[in-house]
Amino acid sequence: MNKLKLDVENYRNLLKQYITTHDETSLYQAEQFSKVSMQHNISPEEIIHVHIEALKDLYPHLPSEVDDSMNFLLEAMISYGLAYQEFQSLREKQLELKSEISVAANMQKTLLSTVKPTINGIDIGAISVPANQMNGDYYHFVTANDESLGIAVADVIGKGIPAALAMSMIKYSMDSFPENQRFPSDILKNLNRVVERNVDPSMFITMFYGLYHPATSSFVYSSAGHEPGFFYNAKKDTYEEIQGKGLVLGVTNDTTYEEFEIKVKKDDKIILLTDGVTECRLGDRFIERDEVLEVIKSYIHLPAQEAVESVYKHFERLQDFQLRDDFTLIIIQKNV
């Protein structure tokens, strides 16, 4: 309370100075006084109280009407004081929430983290950038003793925390499937049931699951309504859409998924993505899927990891670029 007392003195001097000189600087100092008071959580009615004290000090023979009116004003300010207190506590709560969300985001990162495997003859690049704090996209690599490589890419509808929670569910369900159940159609069929049972009707997940066998150079995949990727055929020097129609996860409980196969030869590339890549915007304009492919083509000669990062940086550098959705891009190239 000592500090406040000092402040009363200070306030009285300022007030006196202003009343006698009408000096602009004392007005400015009054403003500073209010700033400092805010910093010390001093409520509006306390300021009025200080004003009354200072006024009585300066003019001991103040008409009683003025004195009364001041007390009246004091009462009239009480709600403002309460609002100010509420503001303070909301601000604290907001800081708390912010730090809780960032803890959750970090935890999600740890939970969903996947190790990019090193496999002879295959170069893998992967990038996933969330539009907000938490990522609703997910990719995961699964390796097994037979050297096969499973690749999952998924996108939860919507963004933020609900999407991130649903993603964790997918990850845990996948982890709980038995080792021998690695075929894309089985994995999607089982995940579909999990999602259908456990999420809100308006929520769904798109997912692509591919399984690559180095021994046979076969890439088997199924898609649950996922944005199609591209397959680069080195011999023909062409890019084709990776076709594979299947219903998104979580809509009906008995959905089955067809399996498709691509034979991967030397220098062929598999490009997987989420719709955050193809739904980029420049100001009011959408970046068309063809343009996205052109950008990918211009960096595809690079090592896979460098290529995916360059593609993202390319978009990021464009003027008026906005990332409206989480952005995930994976490139797999066969080197032998």
């Binding site: 996108d155 509808i157 919507g158 809100d200 009707p201 308006s202 929520m203 769904f204 798109t206 998104v248 809509v251 719709d275 739904e279 959408f286 409206r324 959705d325």
Partner: peptide, 15 residues
Amino acid sequence: YMDSTGLGVFISALK
């Protein structure tokens, strides 16, 4: 323009 959030609304309406 419609994004996946819109699809979600149509799915719940369908259900």
